[in-house]
């Protein structure tokens, strides 16, 4: 069997590798190169050195959007994971209709980000109108609006991962803890959570990177209003690229910086939670 797999390696790997190179590796390398260039179209670039980097670092809006994004990622990480874990716990108890609940909680995840953004925009504005204001008038309305939106969208997905994790905890461990006289809280903190670390690692990684990468929802819910105050990093990169003549390279620089930041944070988070994982 192993031999057969080796023999067919090229058919299995090459198409995907080709797609990966075409869709990821080549654009990635081009992107880094372009961040040192002045260009209008990507195939016709002129090398200009680090001047784009200087412009990017001078941009105060970019700095604001960085901190705004960090705050958003942290808050959404906590909200999504706490609620998803609680739901996962609740829906692994023997309740009537757990499958129906699981399906319903999961469903928002099937709707695309842009559509969700517009729908929630209508909902929020419908409510805020009663108080004589609107989503686009205050950056913190936009912030909490986004938090509600992504929580609604992603909690169901994370919940499924947690449910899978919870179901794989062997019953005898729990039973042993119960016999030893551990209280409910002790069982949760000392048994369930340590056993769940692999699921927690995955969910935290997904929600923190999603928080940083958020684009569609931001674009459709607030579009950065008021005055770019609710513009997150991905949207800021996009707007820089298209907003001014000759600023394509600066947008590219921001994309490179964005990549580095997300990779560093992702790695740090993976290492931190991995170290707490236990062997069953």
């Amino acid at each position: 069997m192993e031999k057969a797999i080796k023999r067919y390696m090229p058919i299995f790997v090459l198409p995907t590798l080709f797609a990966f190179a075409l869709g990821f590796i080549i654009p990635f390398i081009m992107g880094i190169w372009l961040s040192f260039c002045k260009f209008t179209t990507v195939t016709d670039a002129k090398f200009v050195g680090i001047s784009n980097y200087i412009d990017a670092f001078k941009d105060t809006v970019f700095r604001h959007s960085f901190w705004y994004t960090v705050l958003f990622a942290v808050v959404s990480l906590i909200v999504i994971n706490v609620v998803a874990f609680a739901l996962g716990m609740a829906l692994t108890k023997e309740l009537r209709g757990t499958n129906v609940f699981r399906t319903i909680f999961f469903m928002p995840n099937l709707i695309g980000g842009i559509v969700l953004g517009y729908i929630w925009q209508l909902i929020f504005n419908g409510i805020l109108e009663k108080y004589g204001t609107a989503l686009g008038l205050n950056e913190w309305y936009g912030f909490w609006g986004l938090i509600i939106l992504v929580s609604w969208q992603q909690i169901g997905y994370m919940m499924i991962i947690y449910i899978a994790g919870l179901q794989s905890i062997p019953g005898d461990v729990m039973e042993a803890a119960e016999i030893d006289g551990a209280t409910k809280w002790q069982r949760l903190w000392k048994v369930t959570i340590p056993m769940m670390m692999p699921s927690i690692t995955i969910c935290m990684f997904l929600s923190i990177t999603n928080g940083f990468k958020l684009f569609d929802q931001n674009l459709s819910l607030t579009a950065g209003e008021p005055a770019k105050m609710s513009e997150m990093m991905a949207l800021n990169i996009f707007n820089t690229f298209y907003g001014r003549t000759g600023w394509e390279g600066v947008g590219q620089v921001k994309a490179v910086l964005f990549f580095i930041i997300v990779v560093l944070i992702g790695m740090f988070q993976l290492r931190a939670t991995r170290s707490k994982e236990v062997q069953q």
């Binding site: 204001t133 005055a227 907003g243 001014r244």
Partner: peptide, 19 residues
């Protein structure tokens, strides 16, 4: 008008002023 950014800046300010 020098750029799209200018238009967006004025647009946001007009909206805030209207409110």
């Amino acid at each position: 008008i020098p750029s799209e950014e200018w238009k967006n800046g004025v647009g946001s300010a007009l909206t805030a002023y209207a409110a």
